[in-house]
Nucleic acid binder design. Sequence first.
DNA 1: GCCATGACGTTCC
DNA 2: GGGAACGCCATGG
Length: 124
Amino acid sequence: MNVTYERIYAVVNRIPKGRVATYGQIALLAGIPGQARRVGYALSALTEERRVAWHRVVNARGEISLRAEPGAGELQRAMLEAEGVVFGRDGRIPLARVLWQPSAPASPRVRRGRASRARPRGRR
DNA sequence: GCCATGACGTTCC
DNA sequence: GGGAACGCCATGG
């Protein structure tokens, strides 16, 4: 297993209870900024032995990313709700309130709206 | 070794 | 605000 994967899992495990983090955020903290896709892949290859809090990882929209496993979305939502994470009417999570902020000493309004803009590219 | 796909993200129209 | 396009990378065929 790659060290990157381990680091990703470690970052995910650092998410405090009752909070969620986005894939991009995790990728950033894991040392692979902009590669959220790899994070998703790492989580897909996740096993129960790892015991990673994968349910605290959501996409940038605050929604639960569905995967191959049927019913996993419901499970994830149930686990999050059990931890105190609130869900909006449309099934989304208000990231402004429950988004994990690794370095939020006293100003919770550090990043509002988007998760980050590490790559201001975007040619089209 | 090339091609297609995927638990995603960001920017532009 | 919604949709489309491009990116980056690992994995499997």
